[in-house]
Each structure stands twice: as structure tokens, then as C-alpha cells.
């Protein structure tokens, strides 16, 4: 994964709360054995009608969404299924961060592994972002700060190891593999079924 220290991008707002991963990518697109090219299915049932035509007033279908790398969403984003396809699809569509007041556990973990920064903000910041779509925000990963164009800053919480992985492009699997000796020691002291 490429190192990433700071993101500067416009926002697109989908204000619905409890957006589940079935909305982010419906299950019928999960029969793939690849992880590439899923962006075309992002929010498929919100973007397209039953004939496959674009639903024009859905925000992701508007040209103004094209250059937006930050998705601002309602409370409890990414709940439901563990499908990492949701993170793959959002990434492929062009998103590099998701901002909400709460982000579901498994989605957060999947997002971090795919270079999507999960940013949980306070209610005031969230309300401002909801009311000001297409604003340019800066997400400073090193300082865990989201900066709004009006000068306001919001510190967000991000696991220190996950932040380290983002900042330096560290692959967590590499770190886990480096724990080989400790894992072997554990296995010797905990034989199967003990």
C-alpha cells in the first residue's frame, strides 16, 4: 500500500444513517473472485433503476461527485455484512476517506486495509459537513485531524498501529509474519484442543 500522510479532497454527502454494506455493494455482485473493478457496483441499487438506467438525482450520479474523494455519511456507516468488497468498491470508485459520527467495526477494519481512512467526528463537525457538501477538507493522518474550510479542526481517533500502517505504507501481514517466533511458542504451549 502506498504511504499516505494527508488527504485533501472535496466531499460528497450521503446523509442516510445506518448505511449497510448491502447498500454499498449488493450481494449479487459478490460472485467475483477478484477485488478489482468493483467501483461500478458501488451503491448500485441507489444509482440505477430496475432497467439499469442512472437515477439522476442520486448524488453519486452527478458530475459534481466525480472529483470527490471523501464520503460524508450518516451515523453508523458500513454496518452489516463483513464483505470487504464494500471497501474495494468504494476505493475503486475513488473514495479515500469516509466521515461519519460512527463507523461499524468490521467495515472500519476493512477500510483501513485498503487505504480508506475512517474518520469519526463529533456531531457539530458532522452537521457542518452534511450542510456543506462539496467542501474541500484536509485529513491530516499524522495528527489525526480533519480540517474544514472554515478553519475548524476536528481531532479524530485512529488506532496508532493503523495510522502507522497508513503513514508508512506498512502491510499488517508483514508485521504478523514477523511474529512467527511468538506464534510458534504459543502453539507449543497450547497444543490442539488445550
Amino acid at each position: 500500500m502506498e504511504p499516505i500522510t494527508q488527504l485533501r479532497s472535496k466531499t460528497v454527502v450521503i446523509a442516510n444513517s445506518d448505511i449497510d454494506t448491502d447498500q454499498i455493494i449488493p450481494a449479487r455482485f459478490l460472485t467475483t473472485t477478484d477485488q478489482d473493478g468493483l467501483g461500478k457496483y458501488v451503491f448500485a441499487d441507489w444509482r440505477f433503476d430496475d432497467k439499469g438506467d442512472s437515477i439522476e438525482d442520486f448524488v453519486l450520479n452527478k458530475t459534481e461527485a466525480n472529483d470527490c474523494g471523501v464520503l460524508v455519511a450518516g451515523h453508523n456507516f458500513g454496518c452489516g455484512s463483513s464483505r470487504e468488497h464494500a471497501a474495494w468498491a468504494l476505493r475503486d470508485f475513488g473514495f479515500r476517506a469516509v466521515v461519519s459520527t460512527s463507523i461499524a467495526d468490521i467495515f472500519r477494519s476493512n477500510a483501513l486495509k485498503n487505504g480508506i481512512v475512517p474518520v469519526e467526528v463529533n456531531d457539530d463537525t458532522h452537521q457542518w459537513l452534511l450542510a456543506n457538501p462539496r467542501c474541500e477538507v484536509t485529513i491530516d493522518i499524522g495528527h489525526s485531524v480533519l480540517r474544514l474550510p472554515n478553519g475548524t479542526q476536528c481531532v479524530f481517533s485512529i488506532d496508532s498501529f493503523a495510522r502507522h500502517c497508513l503513514l508508512y505504507g506498512v502491510d499488517p501481514l508483514g508485521y504478523l509474519l514477523s511474529q512467527e517466533q511468538a506464534i510458534s511458542t504459543y502453539e507449543r504451549s497450547h497444543p490442539c484442543g488445550q
Binding site: 477485488q35 463483513s82 464483505r83 470487504e84 471497501a87 468490521i106 477494519s109 476493512n110 486495509k113 485498503n114 488506532d159 498501529f161 499488517p172 501481514l173 508485521y175 504478523l176 509474519l177 511474529q179 512467527e180 506464534i183 502453539e187
Partner: peptide
């Protein structure tokens, strides 16, 4: 439940990084 990246972690190391 875990995502697919973590499925690979467990396949390779029988372990997971967890808070």
C-alpha cells in the same frame, strides 16, 4: 467475522491483529 484481508492473515499466520 473478519474481512478478506484478515482471512489471508489467518490463513498465513493462524493469528489476527486485534485491539
Amino acid at each position: 467475522g473478519i474481512g478478506t484481508t484478515e482471512v489471508a492473515h489467518v490463513l498465513a499466520t493462524q493469528s489476527l491483529l486485534q485491539r
